[in-house]
Write a protein that binds this DNA or RNA. Structure first.
Lengths: 101, 101
DNA sequence: AAAACCTATCGTATATTTGCGATAAACATT
DNA sequence: AATGTTTATCGCAAATATACGATAGGTTTT
């Protein structure tokens, strides 16, 4: 490939902010998070009902938000309850605030 | 293709926020904007000196930031002076603030 | 006019993202 | 044990993003 073989490193805060921004870089994920902010928590199925995309795609977006640390899932068999991860949410909020002055 | 033929629509604010987030979704672009925040303005060459990537790649990232409306270029022959677009910056700031409560 | 300088764009290669249907996995209920 | 419910994952296809070198298009300087 033509891309650099070694991963380019930036400052920790820069990388962290970019990572959070990436998690927010799709309207579906924004919609999910807005929904979670209102409901505080919800099940995957609730989102599937609300969003205009398939269940598997919703699940994939949830996975990304989970990987970014913005949400967390709790087993409530047979469902899974998703909530915002308040700690990381606060971290993201702070990073964006600092960034925008 | 397997993806939906029609573009899925979300609320205007949701789309706008996702678009700004996408522009911020790469550490290089965060680094560029941070640099611009300090300097208020700079030339492309300044960024090429500072960043660990090639000139063409820097230019590409600048283009994306310009497309997102976060920066603007002004011809200062033979250079181009880039500054933050204060209006859109404020819009983005507000959107993120509202989003994070 | 020629040379030098600065930046954007083109062409290319690769990686990642997005989306779907199908299927699997986990658990509860019957 | 069999069935139903719910969600994650797999496999695939297409679009988008990332990166580079080479080149083109301006402008200034010589």
């Amino acid at each position: 490939m033509k891309r650099s073989l070694e991963h380019i490193e930036y400052k920790e805060d820069t990388e962290a902010l970019a990572k959070f921004a990436k998690a927010l870089a799709h309207p579906t994920r924004i919609a999910i998070l807005k929904y979670l902010e209102n409901q505080s928590c919800c099940f995957t199925g609730d989102l599937v009902d609300v969003l205009p995309i398939s269940q598997s795609t919703v699940s994939q977006h949830l996975k990304e938000l989970k990987n970014a640390g913005l949400i967390q899932g709790e087993l409530k068999p047979p469902k899974i309850k998703y909530c915002i991860n308040q700690d990381n949410w606060k971290t993201a909020k702070t990073l964006f605030q600092q960034f925008f002055d």
